[in-house]
Design a protein around this nucleic acid. Sequence first.
DNA 1: GGATCGTTTTGCAGTCACTGCAAGTTTGCA
DNA 2: TGCAAACTTGCAGTGACTGCAAAACGATCC
Lengths: 208, 208
Amino acid sequence: MNQPGESLRDRKKRRTRAALERATVRLSAERGYDHVTVEEIAAEADVSVRTFFNYFASKDEALIGADPEAGPRMAERVLAAPDEVSPFEAYRRSVLAEITDELNNARDLWLLRKEVLMQRPDLLVRAFANSAQYEQLLADAVGRRAGLPEAHLYPRLLVAAGSAAFRCAVTRWAVDDDVALGDLVSEAFDLFGTGLAHVPKHHHEGGS
Amino acid sequence: MNQPGESLRDRKKRRTRAALERATVRLSAERGYDHVTVEEIAAEADVSVRTFFNYFASKDEALIGADPEAGPRMAERVLAAPDEVSPFEAYRRSVLAEITDELNNARDLWLLRKEVLMQRPDLLVRAFANSAQYEQLLADAVGRRAGLPEAHLYPRLLVAAGSAAFRCAVTRWAVDDDVALGDLVSEAFDLFGTGLAHVPKHHHEGGS
DNA sequence: GGATCGTTTTGCAGTCACTGCAAGTTTGCA
DNA sequence: TGCAAACTTGCAGTGACTGCAAAACGATCC
């Protein structure tokens, strides 16, 4: 009875994971990240503290809702992109796909996260640090696609730029969210794509 | 008798700080970062555990030897660069200056750190997370120089790219240190400067 | 050579994230 | 129904980190 891809067990796991993520974000937004203990989070989600740590390796991860499949998924997308697409574009698309998916599924959570990240911008960086392994995975995918040797800087830089793009976009989005997060990430990628050597023209009331 | 800038007190503080940094790096390289306790580090440096935490906010910081003055110093350099220099170039130079200074003063420490960071690449990212405040400071400096409004993505991205450049360069350097770290950082900056949209040509036996 | 004042060091008690282990409980399957 | 595998839980322990109040120390003034 688990052909549809979801056994009872799987469903329960997904729910527990979601509940923990949600509890972490909600409580942190309410009282501030470090005035919330894992004990409280676990209680809110109706599981034991030990179970919390079966799902997330750290409180940080739970706040961001780190999805262990996101890395591999993106790597796969990078490799699966059509041949005529550049490595840069392939990577950019896989990041954007991931983000729009995420926002479509949990926009409300991200609005709460924003509150937390405004107080503690370092948490986002720290969260990315946990996924250093996936960075390697992604860099390998990009490197393969670009036909570069293992040690070349380019794949690493591109992936790191992706993290940076996301991070900066969120920071900017937190300041004022008139613009969609996806658009900001896209804009950041454009800047990385065309190079940072020159200050981009910026259009505002008055012109340059 | 403290006109020369260094009272006995100041000298002692500098020594203690250096001893703690050195002990952290040495022991971590020897036994692995998380098989070393702060207690052992403090003992090695001949101070109490509590004193360790008077100097460094965390074990992570001690490993990297986070210099609280580095951020402000770089910001100042960015603002002090000659007028005809672009914000990008100004920032690049201030990063490189900082790195070469650091390497000249403590190359041996960095060779040990390399060992540790090879095992635990996430530590470098985490260390940068602590200096999120300085990122803001630097971004403001760059933004001012570029004449961009507060909220613009460019300054943030440039600074984040700097971190990424350093991080990737160290990772690459750890793999094989035939190339000087400074050169690698410089190369990374070049890539960011000219844009990541296209895969850089890479010269090797056989040509493209 | 003190007396004094500000700074640094220290010990201590406490909190909290996180881990390994060894049951217990639930789910999947025959 | 019953067994095996997967999940949950409690427990005991480690270790990072904090606040506080007392002690040690360095600078300064007489």
